[in-house]
Amino acid sequence: MVSKNRTVTIKDVAEEAGVSKSTVSQYLNNRYEYMGLETRERIAEAVDELGYQPNIVARSLKQKTSTTIGVIVANISHEFSTQIVRSIEEYCNESNFHIIVCNAEDDPEKEKKYIEMLRAKQVDGIIVFPTSMNISLYQSLNLEDYPMVFIDRYVPDVKTSSIMLDNKKASHLAVREFVERGYKKIGIVTNSTENNVTPRIERIEGFIEAARVNGLIVKNDFIKGVEIEAIQAELEKMLFRPDPPEALLAGNDLTLFEILKFVKEHKMEIPKDLAVIGIDDVSFASIYDPELTTIGQPTSEMGKKAAELLLKRIKGDEVAFQDIYRFEPFIKRRSSC
């Protein structure tokens, strides 16, 4: 019987199960190739009976891996971010890896501190929603051959794979939906484009392309990329002008929240007074009144791909380099346009 006052060791488990320490070690590392079912069951019972907890720090030092990765999101407020993180966590859990999630809040300095902190903790690699402003730091990680994958954004000067939506196609889907429903005066509102955040830039570019393809007049006053705090004022200017847009594309979920808030405060009706489509399939889209038409992203597949690429790099598996992996958007038609 092991005393409750001391830590249970692999030796204790081995003695309880009647096997060698090396057999217990193989079991704990999921190496079952030459281990009978009865032996595995005895070890499992011993682990459970003794309450054995592996020493993760000691194991990481011995194996030269922490079996941990860092995930730095640009802004955890986005539903897209939380959905991606969930997918990454599921894939890593199945691969016996842990994740540490950090929220940079679109702040390059905060992102830099998190990268340095994660390196100090010796995580095996990182998945980053990059702010795009720490190029020299990203490049230094590349020079060290440190495993890193970008998601949602692309940084041209950094040779690292990026997992991204086909953002231009997302805007095309929305504009086509507006046009098919008879709207001609269409606008787009998104977060600030000042720091060249890829999805915001690409969605505006896609909007302009789609408007021209569909024979619409592109009005600069109907295209806004501003800080979240300024969206209400921009909407007031845009929607209370003599010739306002009939329909708006929200560039992401946070922008959609601002549009819905504006509509409520000014007692407007969707789609009677303003048709709306949002990029990002928000969780409340199907219960809002009216139900919101959205352009969705395959977040499960995107998160899984990011985790898969990173873990392959960590394990030294050969992966042919590809700078951007594009994923297809899809439309969920509801009642807001």
Rank of each mutant, 00 (worst) to 15 (best):
Q232H: 14
Y288K: 06
Y183T: 11
N93K: 11
S81W: 08
G187L: 15
I228L: 11
L141S: 00
V123W: 04
I217H: 14
I84C: 03
K168L: 05
V319C: 13
M117P: 00
N134A: 08
I331A: 02
S77V: 08
S286Y: 04
K224S: 06
K11V: 06
N252Y: 03
I72W: 06
R203I: 01
L61S: 01
I314D: 15
G296L: 02
R59I: 10
P242A: 10
K237I: 09
E194Q: 13
L37R: 06
R212L: 14
K184S: 14
C102K: 03
A46G: 02
V155W: 00
Q232L: 10
A74E: 15
G215D: 09
I270G: 11
T293Y: 02
E90K: 13
K110C: 08
A120I: 11
D281N: 13
G51F: 12
H266P: 01
N220G: 15
K184W: 12
T160K: 03
L143H: 09
S162N: 01
R334M: 05
E89M: 05
I115N: 03
I115H: 04
S60I: 03
Y138H: 00
K267T: 11
F330S: 14
K261C: 02
I84P: 01
E116V: 00
E105T: 04
V197M: 12
F257E: 02
P147Y: 12
R334D: 10
S336P: 13
G182P: 01
G182Y: 07
A44T: 07
F97L: 08
K261P: 00
N29S: 13
K264H: 09
K219R: 15
D273R: 03
Y32L: 04
V123H: 06
I135G: 01
I204T: 09
L274A: 01
P298Q: 08
P54Y: 03
L141Q: 00
G182R: 06
G215F: 13
G206P: 10
S300R: 14
K219C: 14
M164C: 15
K272T: 15
E318Q: 10
Y32S: 01
S66F: 01
I277C: 04
G225Q: 12
L310F: 05
A174H: 10
V73S: 07
E90C: 06
V218I: 15
N5L: 04
K11G: 00
L118S: 06
S95W: 04
T293H: 02
S300E: 13
N195S: 05
T160I: 03
Y154D: 00
S283H: 04
D273P: 05
I99A: 10
K305E: 02
F327T: 06
T255D: 00
R40V: 02
V149S: 05
K219N: 14
Q297R: 12
F207Q: 14
R31H: 12
M117F: 04
K267A: 12
N252P: 11
K237T: 09
L50Q: 06
L137M: 01
L216C: 07
Y32W: 03
Q232M: 12
